[in-house]
Structure formats: C-alpha cells, structure tokens
Design a protein around this nucleic acid. Structure first.
Lengths: 138, 138
DNA sequence: GTAATGTCTCTAGTGACTAGAGGTTCAAGA
DNA sequence: TCTTGAACCTCTAGTCACTAGAGACATTAC
C-alpha cells in the first residue's frame, strides 16, 4: 500500500489529477488510513496507468469511462471498445488534415514579411485583414 | 449602421461570441441606439473579419489582441506580428507531429481487434493497459 | 518532541466560448 | 396607432480537463 504521492511518482500523473479522476469516477474510491489519507495497491496503479495511457492517446474522460467499464467485464463484447478507438483515430486524422491546411497557409503568410518594416506594410497583418489574400479555404 | 444580428450573418460569427469579443477587448465598445442595442459600421465589420480569420488560423485571443494593437499603429515595427505568426506556425507543426505519432499508434491498436470477440481478449483494451505493447513513445 | 513534508477538502480560475432565464426594443403589418 | 413576434439586452452558469491556492490535519525522519 502506498500514498497518493507515491502513486503520482510512479505513474507521472499529478496528485490533484488523481483526485480529480477519482471524483469523475475513473478511479474507484481509494481506501483510507485512520488519518483519512488515500492508500493504493497494484490494482490502483494499473488502472491509473491505463487511464494515463488512454489520455496520452487523446481519449476523452467519457470514452475512458466506457473503456474501463468494458475492462471490468471481460465477458462482454468488445465492439464498443473498437468503436471508440476507431472514432478516436478518425478524429485524430481529421485534426491532422485541418492542421495541415493551417500550416500551409501560415507558412505562406509568415514568409510574406520579414518583420523589418512597419506594420502598415506588413503582409502578415494584411493577410489577416483580407481573406482574399489566402490561397485556400480554411 | 447595422445590428449585431446582421454583423453575425455577414461574418459568420455567432452573436454571443461577438459580445464576448467586445468584453475581452478585441472589439471596441459598440455604439448604441437609444434603446441600448449595439450598432456597427464597416470598421466594425472589418475588425471582426480580421479576428475571425485569425481565430480560424488558430491564433489565441491574446495573440489577436497584440496583432490588433499593431494594426492600429501602422507606423510601428511589425516584428512582433511576424514573431506571433512564426510561433503560431511552430505550434501548429508541433501539434501535427504529435498527432501523427498518435495516429500511427491508434491505427496499429485499432487493427489489432475486429470487435467481434469479448473484451477479455480485446487487443485495444490490452494495449491501453500495457504500454509495453506500444511501438513507440507518445 | 519537533520540524519538514505530505495530504486533506474546498473554492476558484483557465480558454473560448455556449446555453438559458427573464426582461426590453425594434420593425413590419393591420 | 397598435400589436405581434423576432431580435436584442444583461447576467449567471456550464463546458473540458485540469491547475492553483488557502487553511487545516497527518505522517515521517531525526
């Protein structure tokens, strides 16, 4: 059994974040010492690692809730889990696509001004003011 | 002179968002009718278009504040503007990089399970539980 | 025994909006 | 001129996933 600080060190999840996950129902309510401090065991460590890994991959708290629910019932169909992962993948792909468009446009705009003139002549500011100076939709 | 609803239609920025921008100081306080309703002119339309364009490109409210400040002083050096644009570009590139890593990992994980088994055997859930099943850092 | 560190709960703040309540003003038609 | 209905006003609270801070209590090391 170890403290919340120790759990934090091992998982690299900050202490207030651990308490937050407990409040959100991602972590079960922890056991307590006589002085009311939380104590964790290996199961707690594994669950928090799971959460942290899923968060790192961009899953929402809600999605992680569903994934944990499934993990706790190994006999259920895992269709929901693969659905969640697939839609997360699609979201990531959509974000990449959008960011790539932004990147091209920002890169073009940035190159238009070396920052050595005055703002009245600045191509960056002019581009933002007038959408027609843009190459593509964004 | 036209109403906030008309401005909203022309810029495709929602009415409450326009009021929010005013509160944040991005838009100057609008003129009012005797009945206290906001009225805008061409200058207001142009400024809001500028803001919307910058937001679409991912600039923060704070960054836009600085850009507007420069726009209002055409005689100042535009170095700050190019700096802001460049760092926005770098941020976008960093995000893309991270998302690409996530995409690869999520794609690999998703392919590991067709969703037809039970969750006890699900590769998606197993991968999340055990970081060692991952190909790379993320 | 004492001091330092860790932990507790609670409230409020972040960014960029969005939603809703409850009330007022405007523009158009009768 | 009157009425109706849409648009507008302010204010508060909610979103997401935390983060910061206050003030009090617990634990650990010496």
């Amino acid at each position: 059994m170890f403290s919340i600080g120790e759990l934090s060190k091992r998982t690299k999840v900050k202490v207030p974040t651990i308490r937050y996950y407990e409040e959100m129902g991602l972590l079960p309510e922890a056991e307590r010492t006589s002085g009311n401090q939380r104590r964790y065991n290996k199961a707690g460590l594994e669950r928090l690692s799971f959460i942290r890994h899923a968060r790192d991959l961009g899953f929402s708290i809600e999605a992680i809730s569903s994934l944990i629910e499934l993990q706790d019932h190994p006999d259920r169909s895992c269709e929901a889990a693969t659905d969640i992962a697939t839609s997360q993948l699609e979201e990531v792909r959509a974000k990449i696509k959008r960011l790539r468009t932004l990147e091209k446009e920002l890169s073009r705009i940035s190159k238009g001004c070396d920052g050595e003139g005055v703002s009245g002549d600045c191509y960056v500011l002019a581009s933002l003011a007038d959408h027609n100076l843009c190459d593509r939709e964004h």
